[in-house]
Design a protein around this nucleic acid. Structure first.
Length: 901
RNA sequence: GGGCGGAUAGCUCAGUUGGGAGAGCGUCGGCCUUACAAGCCGAAUGUCGCAGGUUCAAGCCCUGUUCCGCCCA
């Protein structure tokens, strides 16, 4: 391939499509059930089948893909298990909306037809997100894609249900649950979002049965009074002691209800008297149980008042509230209305205000399961990262309440329970029983409810691997290595997978749980369609390329911190991709006919720069490895960024240019003489350039797979996909302290000269002379040795290296270490400018020196601080003092010159 | 009401056995120097939210406090 023909700007579109196809075709994402390699496995948090890729998915999956690609290159047998979730209510809502357009509803269709219709919808429109994940570069083993309603996973669901029922951990009963009148189904506590709402507190007088007067209760939901069956006061409330056991007349309903006392009542709330509606409030329900009160349901499943609501029957619950208030006003029983802030529950799917509702539902008794799930985190069998979430996890697990798992919708796993019409016997079984085990009756009716979607998601780590069958996949890949997910589903999903995994597999579902934060907009607001502040990941990929996008997410992925994403940030990282691309273009210009020498002949006689870049590369490999192992994606990404841009490009490529271009060994003449380069030096340089670039793209591949593969492909002497190449290892032998120290000195001197040029506005086209004076023989020798590097990078026509001596005339000064740097500016120097520059420099040193002086004059510091630290401070003080002296000396001379002119 | 997180340069944020306040973006100055102007070279910029405490030494540890955000009830 004609590498010198690479386009000037990197164009991701075509490249990404081509390589993704190639990876899939070559089966590079596929995991082996049987392998000598060590396993590494991740199950994807299954997106809703109705979902489209949003920033949260993009972030979550980018992190997973980085880990998978990293481990694959390290030689692991990687399984990244993909799939989607049937998302009961969400999917049902989508299809119902579609039906509504056809002026139909699910009831007119009937259950069976409706479910068919949902399957059909799924065939046609579902799982779009799976295609979108490919655009991101996700390296899932697509052949293993699962769906929570697949036959295999459904079998797992039924098995778990039956077993838990056998073990007494699933039960059915009449309790207050959260009811969504729009979705017409029960919800678990977690599926209710609480929002603060400015409402009112209504004070209503319930007249005594016989005497005058009455007791005043306070409520935010007056319509529920129609179902009141008592008034409760606190047993320690002296105000009401005399009233206990008496009765009041429930207004509007003219029902006699007792005044009872219960510890639950808070004397400070309202009047201290609480109306009790067991059928419509969870606390009231419990009080009702304790006092054997009747539960009267006055609100129906559809959110309208029912026949128990007397003259209010048929009214919407909120309409009814107004009418009840009006009626009370008319009767003079509404004593007072106060503005009141209280939280109101909303359905997490459709935002409808949730109604506490008494009904017969199925529950999981989670306490015993939670105990196991707590234990494994305590022992460290599963680590939660960052650790801060461990406490939240424990908190929730310790205060867990039974989980309502039945839903009155049609799309989902139907509860495997049957009722005998003859004797009412309840049978829970894997499949339809042929006869009632109690009475042998044959009319058995299956439970119409389906299971909470999260019930099947809870089994995901093992149901996707074939459980309840004893599969090789399970043997190889369970428990999974890590789960990567957002904190928003820590309870919904992670906690439940922990419980189910441990209970059924006798082994934790994951070794690590990495919890990441949220992607927000540039102002830190949550992205939402209604706010109009969403950034579409697909748009970003089209516009900037998947690599730039992925790298942005990784670079901003600081643990425990939300990402504030803006297009500007992505654009910035696109520049990085382009930088790498152009560095490659440059390299390939000189490598087109290069053939890497397997024998290692090429590594003889490395130059300083060669040794330095290889040593630095080792440092980056170490940093990336350490940070990825610790899920510090941002640190890993930034290490690569810094290396590529500020070491490889800014220094290494600049240093080797003369060798590659065959430029004059001495630039002193200021002319570029095309010389035939020394073959050995040239070949060595090409070898190191090739190695460095080769290793760099391997390090970068997990983050920016497409461009890395493209570069890998263009690089001579590479074979196969970069996905199967080895991830660079850091070894102590590759660290070259001497090269790094020497380069630090040279870079410091070069920096000093460049600083003068920049500050004094010397244009790059102007070649100047410089002098470095140092008492240090070693430093002088190094400068002599690498004179050409300095000449070249500073655009000098001459460099004199000498012992400290007189200041060269008409020069500007700077100091690095024990070296004084002079740049001769004959005829160009502006002494005022130089004076200002020196003053500024001195002021900086003085400031720093003050702090050090204080330390060194502090006896306590000298005595108590470790000698190491004291020594370091001393040395630094000396360095600064010397630097200051030099600069002041120069300032004085410059001041004289200014005075003379 | 309970719990958690954040507050560091103009912006977004790094900063762990406590010992030299940093990066990116933006800004300013100089450059189209034969990979890249999506670039190169250089520069400026801080009461580390506030108040105490521990320590020879605090952005970091402790206590209190203010503001912002989140979770749970």
């Amino acid at each position: 391939m004609g590498s010198h023909l690479l386009k000037k700007g990197y164009e991701p579109k075509e490249v990404e499509k081509r390589w993704y196809k190639y990876w899939e075709k070559e089966g590079l994402f596929s995991a082996k059930d049987v392998s000598d390699k060590e396993p590494f496995s991740i199950v994807i948090p299954p997106p809703n089948v109705t979902g489209v890729l949003h920033m949260g998915h993009a972030y979550n999956n980018t992190l997973q893909d980085i880990l998978c690609r990293y481990r694959r290159m390290q030689g692991y047998n990687v399984l990244w298990m993909p799939g989607t979730d049937h998302a009961g209510i969400a999917t049902q809502n989508v299809v119902e909306k579609e039906l509504a357009k056809e002026r139909k509803d699910r009831h007119s269709l009937g259950r069976e037809k409706f479910v068919e219709r949902v399957w059909q919808w799924r065939e046609e429109c579902g799982g779009l997100i799976i295609k979108q994940l490919r655009r991101l570069g996700a390296s899932c083993d697509w052949a293993r894609e699962r769906f929570t309603m697949d036959e295999g996973l459904s079998k797992a669901v039924r098995t778990v249900f039956v077993k838990l029922h056998e073990q007494g951990l699933i039960y059915r009963g009449n309790y207050i649950i959260n009811w969504c009148p729009r979705c017409q189904t029960a919800l678990s506590d977690l599926e209710v979002d609480h929002e603060d709402h400015s409402g009112h507190l209504y004070y209503i007088r319930y007249p005594f049965e016989k005497e005058e007067g009455g007791i005043v209760v306070a409520t935010t939901r007056p319509e529920t009074m129609l179902g009141d069956t008592a008034v409760a006061v606190s047993p320690s409330d002296k105000r009401y002691r005399a009233l206990e056991g008496k009765a009041v007349i429930l207004p509007l309903m003219n029902r006699k209800i007792p005044i009872i006392s219960d510890e639950y009542v808070d004397m400070r709330f309202g009047t201290g008297a609480l109306k009790i509606t067991p059928a419509h409030d969870p606390h009231d329900f419990e009080i009702g149980q304790r006092h054997n009160l009747a539960s009267i349901k006055v609100i129906g499943a559809d959110g309208h008042m029912n026949e128990q609501a007397g003259r209010f029957q048929g009214k919407d619950r909120f309409e009814c509230r107004e009418e009840v208030l009006q009626a009370l006003r008319e009767e003079g029983l509404l004593e007072k209305v106060e503005p009141y802030q209280h939280s109101v529950g909303h359905c997490y799917r459709c935002r409808t205000t949730v109604e506490p509702y008494l009904s017969k539902q199925w529950f999981v008794k989670v306490k015993p399961l939670a105990e196991e799930a707590i234990a494994v985190v305590e022992t460290g069998a599963t680590r939660i990262i960052p650790d801060i979430w461990t406490k939240t996890y424990f908190e929730w697990m310790n205060n867990i309440k039974d989980w309502c798992i039945s839903r009155q919708i049609w799309w989902g796993h139907r509860i495997p329970a049957w009722t005998c019409e003859d004797c009412d016997e309840l049978i829970v079984a894997m499949g339809p029983p042929s006869a009632c085990p109690a009475c042998e009756g044959s009319t058995l009716v299956q439970e119409t409810d389906v299971l909470d979607t999260w019930f099947s998601s809870a089994l995901w780590p093992f149901s996707t691997m074939g459980w309840p069958d004893d599969t090789q996949t399970l043997k190889t890949f369970y428990p999974t290595s890590v789960l990567v997910t957002g904190f928003d589903i820590l309870f919904f999903w992670v906690a439940r997978m922990m419980m189910m995994g441990i209970h059924f597999m006798k082994e934790v579902p994951f070794r690590d749980v990495y919890i990441h934060a949220l992607v927000r907009d540039a102002e830190g607001k949550k992205m939402s369609k209604s706010k109009g502040n969403v950034i579409d990941p697909l748009y970003v990929i089209d516009e900037y390329g998947a690599d730039a996008f992925r790298f942005t997410l990784a670079a901003l992925a600081a643990q425990g911190r939300d990402i504030k994403l803006s297009e500007d940030r992505i654009e910035g990282y696109r520049h990085f991709i382009n930088k790498l691309w152009n560095a490659t273009r440059f390299s390939l210009m000189h490598l087109s006919d290069f053939e890497p020498d397997e024998s290692g002949e090429g590594v003889r006689d490395l130059s300083l720069a060669d040794r330095w870049i290889l040593s630095r590369l080792n440092g980056v490999a170490e940093s990336v490895t350490k940070n990825l192992d610790g899920y510090k994606f941002n640190d890993a990404a930034n290490a690569i960024y810094r290396f590529v841009w500020h070491e490889f490009c800014d220094w290494y490529l600049e240093i080797i240019k003369p060798v590659l271009y065959g430029q004059p060994v001495s630039a002193a003449s200021g002319e570029r003489v095309k010389e035939i380069p020394k073959p050995a030096r040239y070949e060595t340089t090409r070898f190191v350039l090739w190695s460095a670039l080769n290793e760099t793209v391997r390090l970068a591949h997990p983050f920016i797979p497409f461009v890395a593969e493209e570069i890998w492909d263009k690089l001579p002497g590479t074979e196969g996909s970069i996905m199967t190449a080895e991830f660079p290892k850091s070894t102590a032998t590759r660290y070259d302290a001497e090269a790094e120290t020497t380069m630090d000195l040279l870079m410091g001197i070069i920096g000093g000269i460049r600083n003068i040029r920049g500050e004094m506005n010397v244009p790059p086209s102007m070649l100047v002379e410089a002098t470095v004076q140092s008492p240090d023989k070693g430093a002088r020798e190094l400068l002599e040795r690498y004179r050409d590097m300095v000449l070249n990078l500073c655009r000098l026509k001459g460099l004199e290296v000498m012992l400290p001596d007189k200041r060269p005339p008409s020069s500007a000064t700077s100091v690095f270490g024990n070296c004084s740097i002079f740049v001769s500016l004959k005829g160009v120097i502006d002494f005022e400018l130089e004076k200002g520059r020196l003053n500024k420099e001195i002021a900086k040193i003085v400031k720093e020196f003050d702090g050090i002086g204080k330390k060194l004059s502090n006896r306590d510091f000298l005595q108590k601080a470790p000698q190491e630290v004291v020594q370091k401070v001393r040395e630094k003080g000396e360095r600064l003092a010397e630097k200051k002296d030099r600069l002041e000396e120069n300032l004085e001379k410059v001041a004289q010159l200014v005075g003379n002119s």
